[in-house]
Design a protein around this nucleic acid. Sequence first.
DNA 1: TTTTTGTTAGACAAAAATGTTAAGATAAAA
DNA 2: TTTTATCTTAACATTTTTGTCTAACAAAAA
Lengths: 197, 197
Amino acid sequence: MPIKNTGTEQLIKDTAKRLIFTEGKLHATTQEIADAAGVNRTALHYYYRSRDLLIAAIFQDAMQDLSQRLNECMTAPESFKTKTENIIALFLRHMIAFPYQETFLVTEINTLGTKLIDNIQSNPVKSYLKEAAEEMEKGTIEKMNPAHFLMNLFSLLSYPLIMAPLYKKLFRLSGKDFKALIDERAKIIIRLLFKSQ
Amino acid sequence: MPIKNTGTEQLIKDTAKRLIFTEGKLHATTQEIADAAGVNRTALHYYYRSRDLLIAAIFQDAMQDLSQRLNECMTAPESFKTKTENIIALFLRHMIAFPYQETFLVTEINTLGTKLIDNIQSNPVKSYLKEAAEEMEKGTIEKMNPAHFLMNLFSLLSYPLIMAPLYKKLFRLSGKDFKALIDERAKIIIRLLFKSQ
DNA sequence: TTTTTGTTAGACAAAAATGTTAAGATAAAA
DNA sequence: TTTTATCTTAACATTTTTGTCTAACAAAAA
């Protein structure tokens, strides 16, 4: 780590994340990133040496961030429903800020190979799936393979935000109206996933 | 259209679609496309003149295909539930074959601008939404903004297939096991969207 | 004050990707 | 058989993107 930290290294990475994760420009060039960050392109090489290394750093961060969010959410010491409500709140907030983070991860894996994620942590997910299975026994949620429950949850949270540009056109909605729609989703999702009473 | 049609023009486009829509290689180069198609890169230029034009053709096809599927599905003369079951079957089949088609559309829009889709047809969707609202009155599905119903439907259909590389790792599933999981989803989705009896 | 650190600017080199051209092979059509 | 449309090969030009180097400068640290 540098002795005199002016935040430029972080700024570059954060800007790249904004372009890629938030604005969905999955193939931003080094020039575009540097311009958006308001730094010279040389600074990007100064800190990250190459585009690939910057992208690798961003990929690592994204995986780490995803892992950590799953970890924290899924192993929290709360009731299953409360926990699920928290997952929804947290992931919705995240998807609003960084809708293309998961898309980025997947397309990187598709081009660079699946070995990128051999070390993914699946234990917290497993424990959540187990709890879901118990809830199914209790009858608070529909019986199904718990993996489906989790996929349903994440689908309902994520997909509308990824497809926002299409949905806005399809529904003829302004950005504001679409946002209002998204704000309603937490409740909708809970109502859908949990039996009515 | 060429007088002597040997299918190479189509082959090139189909191959590019395979790479982009199926394999999720969203920034395939002309060389990669030509190689995958087993033709010389010049053939690509011979037929499409430039990469951008090939991509534009693919984009148009994808929009057209999406529009047409929506159109056919949503205006079919069947009961709402049957119609929805058909939508699920059709879109699931499509997502299995071309999981990244919508992702491609959205990332293209994100980089080239929203004007690409100003002419999108939203009438069939509107009529489906109206039917959904009627079903809500009847009580066969939960009451909500019909737009949510549609977003729920497409989310549940699409997201798991887009995120397959991640989910396989997260659930530690082989390709075969994951496929089996996906095959169960049509029923799961119907059960989730429609009230139990 | 001198040195170090962070950073910029500019020029340039190298690589990658895209696009062009000309010549020729092939096979089907005329 | 000649012609023509299709497609390849190979060479090359252009553009885009990436990466490197050097000199310089400002601000903080020593």
